[in-house]
Simulated scan of single mutants.
Amino acid sequence: MTDTIDAFHRGRFHLLQPKDGGHRAGMDAMLLASLVTGEGAIRVADLGAGAGAAGLGVAARLDAAQVTLVERSPLMAGYARRTLELAENAVLRPRAKVVEADVTLRGKARMEAGLPDNAFDHVIMNPPFNDSRDRTTPDELKAQAHAMTENLFDSWIRTAAAIMVPGGQLSLIARPQSVAEIIAACGNRFGGLELTAIHPRPGESAIRLLVTAIKGSRSRLAIRAPLFMHDGAGHPFTQQVDDLNNGRAAYHREGR
């Protein structure tokens, strides 16, 4: 399998990825990383981390953040480990580690896999977004990354709630069609949901949904102003999206 080394955040960190197999990280991961805010040695778990793009995006922007990259696939976990060994990532390496584990594990099995209760201030996730019945791709690794199993959001968000401290923040990016499942999965575990739809341009339908929520909060759901990727017919990003994509800004919550 051919590999590539790709620069993110204008070269602040690099990612080793399979060129033709598996899911290649891009803007989704960087927008997800932009949702994490905080000061000091905050502890962040990136569930379904792949080669580590979103988690390392957090570590590159927040100089003291401690990041755990959680990945089920032995192959992609290997890419995450090799990514951390890149010379370009030497400054991030002491603050990041890889845990090879299935996000859906419960109880003792989950803790033995390296995901203890009440261990993280933030949990971020970019869950598989296609229904497993959809025809997605003949590439098996990419299909695993993109295929959504039954009750996926419930199982992933259940794990997020278990490993997060009270008052911790859940952040995820998904397709807008998943909004009902996400809200249902948060249930009594998380409140204060803030939803932001991402549209290519004004007048075009949303293609992604950013979600943040707080463990144990009783605040009501809020739908925020949309984010537009482009101003006009061309491909340049809006200044806000470009800043989020390149780690120059965070997408702060409006409330707690």
Rank of each mutant, 00 (worst) to 15 (best):
S132Y: 10
E150R: 12
Q177W: 08
P166M: 01
T136I: 15
V165L: 12
I163F: 02
S132N: 12
A143N: 15
G167W: 06
S171R: 08
P138H: 02
P166H: 07
Q169P: 02
T137A: 03
D154R: 10
T136F: 02
A174K: 09
T159E: 04
E150K: 10
P138S: 05
T137Q: 06
L152Y: 02
A143P: 07
A162L: 11
V165W: 00
A174F: 06
I173L: 12
D154G: 07
T137D: 11
A184W: 09
G187S: 14
S132V: 08
G168R: 01
Q169Y: 01
T149I: 10
A180V: 11
I183R: 13
G168I: 00
L152R: 08
M164I: 00
I173K: 06
K142V: 00
L172Q: 04
Q177L: 12
N151D: 15
R135F: 08
L170E: 00
G168Y: 00
M164V: 00
A174H: 15
V179A: 10
D154E: 14
R158S: 11
T136Q: 11
V179C: 06
L152V: 03
A145G: 11
I173M: 05
D131K: 09
S155H: 15
R175Y: 05
E181H: 11
S132P: 02
T159M: 03
E150D: 13
A162H: 13
C186A: 12
F153G: 04
C186P: 10
A185G: 07
D154W: 08
K142F: 01
E140L: 12
D139N: 13
Q177N: 13
S178N: 13
R158F: 00
N151C: 06
L141D: 13
F153P: 08
T159D: 07
A180G: 07
T137I: 04
I173S: 03
A145Q: 06
E181M: 06
E150C: 00
T137R: 03
A174Y: 10
Q169G: 01
S155A: 15
Q177T: 15
T159S: 09
N188P: 13
S155E: 15
A161K: 01
Q144F: 08
L152A: 14
N151W: 05
S178C: 11
D134H: 14
I182A: 11
S132M: 13
G167H: 09
G187E: 14
G187N: 14
A147D: 15
A145V: 07
A160C: 07
D139M: 05
P176I: 03
I183Y: 05
F153E: 09
F129H: 12
